[in-house]
Design a protein around this nucleic acid. Structure first.
Lengths: 236, 236
DNA sequence: CGGTGAGTTGACACCGGTCAAAGACCGTGG
DNA sequence: CCACGGTCTTTGACCGGTGTCAACTCACCG
């Protein structure tokens, strides 16, 4: 199990302000509006696999990734399957919808993907107060939520209507521009909405077709044009 | 094609204010904050099938359903399939995310489901100005977007991980508490993310199992307990 | 009475998931 | 240095749900 008992957090208002003012959400606000938030922030350092929160938790904290990355996912089918909703990197928000959406419990789990991953923890109540009272911040948060919603919609459509080969091709084109270390098949499966066995099969198939090169989990795209065709940048 | 050339709109500040102040989104604001919006609103009356907007339109209008209902859906697979995202009834918002999410084009189509359907059209720029500057409104809009996001998430999970029988059972339990006129199978298919043939099969199956009664498109639930079991309100 | 559209039903193909077994890789400890 | 154990990956066999195509029925309407 991930270490959950003992966590280290530390304040650092200067770095917090730096991070806040460079994030897409809070960047639009005047430093004066951000200073009180920065003073309340606590940095927390995680290792790969460490749990940020669990589905069902009542969140009183908003997280802003400082370095590393955080994977947000749901566990379904009685725990037999996982679906990764998104992976957030530096300057991105985690748990935005939960914190602002009333006091509903979190709908997903969040764990660190890398060692180290550092997040800035902000108390929800203060964030809300500050955001609602600052038009520029309110606008930015609303825009961020709207964008996230559009992403979810695209993801929904992809998962429901396109088949595995297409989704994998999209992934490869998005992530493997340069030679790239492939995540474990179980992670890929969670991302693509399937199971590790099928990821293995499809990768093998792409390899046999000469579309990619596979060497000890390093992939390289060989036939970008064909992959894009498979990815469904097709004209029907 | 739906009549799109000629539309009638009319202002009615008193009714608009009434509608706004009773909607879940704007209800939290002081009447003083809503009056300027109400003055800018225009009511528009639609018949079944009339188009409110199309995917790709740049929306400069926010819609609030006054009566009737509006279906928001995406067309996929080169036009061969539709997926209904949600159906909004009175006092509900349509196009919220698009209006607040920047100047991206609308990601979905919207048409009226009933005759008549009346919507209040509000100019996006004014709405934004008013919302961002009023903390109570900003909070309500953010909460609404967050809730919508949670709904989308649940829908995604349902569509990806549960099978058709479960989804149909859920639909029947949600919509056919009392005897109820079933929509055309093509509409049901769009709602459930499948094709009319399969809806027909599953309905027939439920009928043969004695779970529902079917008489000229009127359904009645006979065995609620069994339907709920099928719907996956199952343990674990 | 013929035409049109929706609903129904059968045959069939295919994708995706499950289970099980075998192989590759990597660490630890003898 | 090698043997061992665990995890991840690969592969085969198999099954079931879903989508497609086509034929047929039925109701409604001119």
């Amino acid at each position: 199990m991930a270490a959950s008992g003992h966590v280290t957090t530390s304040p650092d208002p200067a770095r917090a302000l730096e991070l806040l003012s460079h994030s897409p959400i809070f960047g639009g606000a005047a430093p004066a509006a951000l200073r009180p938030l920065a003073a309340l922030g606590r940095f927390r350092t995680l290792r790969r696999g460490d749990v940020l929160f669990r589905s069902g938790d009542i969140l009183e904290t908003l997280f802003l990734v400082s370095s590393g990355s955080v994977r947000v996912y749901r566990v379904v089918r009685g725990g037999t399957r996982e679906l990764t909703l998104h992976v957030e990197g530096p300057r991105q928000l985690v748990a935005g919808a939960s914190v602002f959406g009333g006091d509903d419990p979190a709908p997903a789990h969040a764990v660190a993907l890398q060692t180290p991953t550092e997040v800035l923890c902000l108390p929800a109540a203060s964030v809300r107060e500050q955001v609602f009272g600052t038009p520029a911040l309110a606008a930015a948060v609303i825009a961020a939520l709207a964008r996230r919603q559009a992403e979810l919609l695209a993801r929904l459509e992809e998962l429901v209507f396109s088949e595995l080969g297409e989704r994998l091709a999209v992934y490869l084109l998005d992530h493997a521009a340069a030679p790239h270390a492939l995540p474990p098949n179980s992670d890929l499966a969670a991302l693509l909405g399937t199971v590790p066995e099928l990821v293995s099969r499809k990768l093998g198939e792409f390899y046999r077709l000469g579309l990619i090169e596979l060497e000890r989990r390093q992939v390289r795209v060989l036939d970008r044009a064909e992959l894009e065709r498979l990815a469904g940048r097709r004209g029907r």
